[in-house]
Amino acid sequence: MRRAMNIRPSPGGRLLLAIIPFVLLALVYVLGSAERRAVNPNDKLLPPFSEMATTATRMATEPDKRTGEITLVADTAASLQRLALGLGLATLIGLSLGVAIGILPVANAGGGPLVGVLSMIPPMAILPILFIVFGLGEVSKVVLIVIGITPQIVRDIAMTVQAIPVEQLVKAQTLGASTWQTVVRVVLPQALPRLIEVVRLQIGPAFLFLIAAEAIAADSGLGYRIFLVRRYLAMDVILPYVAWITLLAFIMDWALAKLSRSAFPWAYAGERR
C-alpha cells in the first residue's frame, strides 16, 4: 500500500472526485426541502429547486414594475461596477506601493511600518467614517473595498519583490539598468504573476466588503437585494442570489488563473501537479 500522499487520481477520477461533493450537497438539500414541505406546505426556509428556478427566471427576465429594469441585471451591473472599481484601484495602488516598498530601502523604511499598522485596522470599523466623509453614494462603497484589500496587496507584493534574488538586481545594474529600468524590466514582470494570485485571493474579501456596504446603505446591488428580501423570508430569492454571487466570483477567479498561465508561462514551469 502506497502512502496516502503518493496516491494520485487519474484525470477521470479527478473529475468524479470534484463532482461528488456537489452532488451530495444538492441531495442533502433536496431531501431536507422535501421533508420540510411534507410537514408544512407553506415552508419558506428550504424552498425546492423548482420554486427557486421560477423566482430566479422572473427576476432575470421580467422588468420590475416600479423601476422598469430587470432586477437581477440592474443589481449585478451596480455591484460589478463597484467591485471592478474597488478591485482595480486597489490593484493599482497595491502594485505601485508594493513595488516601491519592495525595491527602495528608503520607501521600505518610510512606508513599511505604516502599511503594517494600517493593514490591522478592521475596515468595517471605519465604514461609518466613510459614510460620513463620502456620503451614502457609490464612492464610500468603492473606498471601503479599496481600504479593505489594498494593504494585503501592498504587503504581499512588497514581500514578493524582496524575495527576488539580489543577484538579479545586481546583474541588471551590471547590464546598465537604472532603478526605473530594473523595476520595469526585472521587478514588475516577476511581480505580476503573484499580483494576479493576490487579486484572486482578494476577490472574496472584496465581495465581503461590497455586500456589507450595500447591506447598510444602497438602493441597488446584489447585497442590497439579499438584505431587502430578508424581511419577507424570501429564501427563494436569497439562495439564487448567493449562488449567482458565488458563480461570479468563481468565474473571475478562474479567468484570472487562466490569464496568468497564458501570460506568464515561465512562472509555472516548475510547479508540481
Binding site: E167, Q168, V170, K171, A172, T174, G176, F264, W266, A267
Partner: peptide, 15 residues
Amino acid sequence: ADRGVVFQRYSVFPH
C-alpha cells in the same frame, strides 16, 4: 556596466 558578473545561481532573468 563596466563590470560584468556571473554568479553561481540566479544570474539570469527567469522571465
